[in-house]
Simulated assay, not measured.
Amino acid sequence: MFTIEHDFDATVITLVDEGGTPLKEDVAINAFEDCVTLEQFDTRRNETVTITLSMTQLRDLSAALDLPEGVYRIVRPRE
C-alpha cells in the first residue's frame, strides 16, 4: 500500500510494508524540485535515516530498474 500527498514544496509518497512478517518500517519519499529524499525509521538506532538523491541519481535509478546486470552511463544528447 502507498499514499501520495502534495505539500507546498514537495510531493510525499509513503510506502507501507504489507508483506509477511517481519514487516519493515514505512518509507517516506519526498520529491523536491532539485532532489528526492527517502526516509525510514531505523529501530536499531532509534532514529530516522535519510538518503538524498540528486535528480541525476534518480534518473539513473529509474533506468537501472529495467536493465540487466552491468555498468552503465546514460549520455544525454546535446541540444
Rank of each mutant, 00 (worst) to 15 (best):
I4V: 14
I4Y: 05
I4S: 05
E5A: 08
H6A: 06
H6P: 00
D7H: 13
D7Q: 12
F8R: 10
F8Y: 07
D9I: 01
A10W: 00
T11V: 12
V12R: 11
V12Q: 04
I13D: 01
I13W: 01
I13V: 15
T14A: 03
T14I: 05
L15K: 02
L15R: 01
L15A: 07
V16M: 07
V16Y: 13
D17F: 03
E18L: 05
E18G: 10
E18Y: 01
E18W: 00
E18T: 11
G19C: 03
G19P: 00
G19H: 03
G20Q: 10
G20H: 08
G20T: 10
G20C: 05
T21C: 03
T21D: 12
T21R: 07
T21K: 07
P22W: 01
P22K: 05
L23F: 04
L23R: 15
K24N: 11
E25K: 09
E25R: 10
E25A: 12
D26M: 05
D26G: 00
D26L: 03
D26R: 09
V27I: 15
V27M: 11
V27G: 02
A28F: 07
I29N: 00
I29C: 06
I29W: 00
I29M: 11
N30Q: 10
N30I: 04
A31Y: 08
A31D: 03
A31S: 06
F32C: 05
E33W: 01
D34S: 14
D34Y: 06
D34H: 11
C35V: 01
V36W: 09
V36T: 15
V36C: 10
E39D: 14
E39Q: 15
E39G: 10
E39V: 09
E39W: 01
Q40M: 14
Q40F: 00
Q40K: 13
Q40L: 04
F41Y: 15
F41I: 09
D42I: 01
D42R: 02
T43R: 15
T43S: 15
R44T: 11
R45F: 04
R45T: 13
N46D: 14
E47D: 13
T48D: 07
V49R: 13
V49G: 01
V49Q: 11
V49A: 03
T50S: 13
I51G: 02
T52W: 02
T52Q: 14
T52R: 15
T52L: 06
L53V: 05
L53T: 06
S54R: 08
M55C: 10
M55K: 15
T56M: 08
T56F: 04
T56S: 13
L58Q: 08
R59D: 06
R59G: 01
R59T: 08
L61E: 06
S62L: 12
S62C: 08
A63C: 12
A63F: 13
A64G: 12
L65D: 02
L65Q: 09
L65C: 11
D66P: 01
L67H: 05
L67Y: 03
P68I: 04
P68K: 03
P68Y: 02
P68H: 04
V71R: 13
V71E: 15
V71I: 13
Y72T: 05
Y72D: 06
Y72C: 05
R73Y: 04
R73Q: 13
I74F: 03
V75T: 12
R76V: 05
P77I: 10
R78W: 08
R78F: 10
R78E: 14
R78S: 11
E79M: 06
E79N: 05
